[in-house]
């Protein structure tokens, strides 16, 4: 695939990647790496913030504080 013009915006890059992926499924390998690495990072971050001991209590208190859970 040849580019018609130089990509400038985020959406241009989204479009290029979608076109490449449509033509060739091998690009899914990179996507898998990205998704799994992000999952690992957010899981580790949450574990640091809410340790295993009293996990639910600490987390629910936090969620109440930020208004996600009803008091």
């Amino acid at each position: 695939m040849k580019l018609k013009q130089i990509p400038k915006t985020d959406l241009d890059y989204v479009e290029i990647y979608a076109r490449k992926l449509k033509e060739n499924s091998k690009f899914f390998k990179q996507q898998k790496k990205l998704i799994e690495s992000q999952l690992k990072s957010s899981s580790q971050l949450a574990k640091q913030k809410f340790p295993k001991e009293n996990f639910k209590i600490t987390m629910r208190n936090h969620l109440k504080k930020i208004g996600v859970l009803k008091a």
Partner: peptide, 21 residues
């Protein structure tokens, strides 16, 4: 080279491996 997806019996089939998600 395989395309990213195909359609089979009205089901979209994505040509990729499963992720942890």
């Amino acid at each position: 080279q395989k395309e990213g997806y195909f359609v089979e019996n009205n089901t979209i089939v994505i040509n990729r491996e499963l992720t942890e998600l």
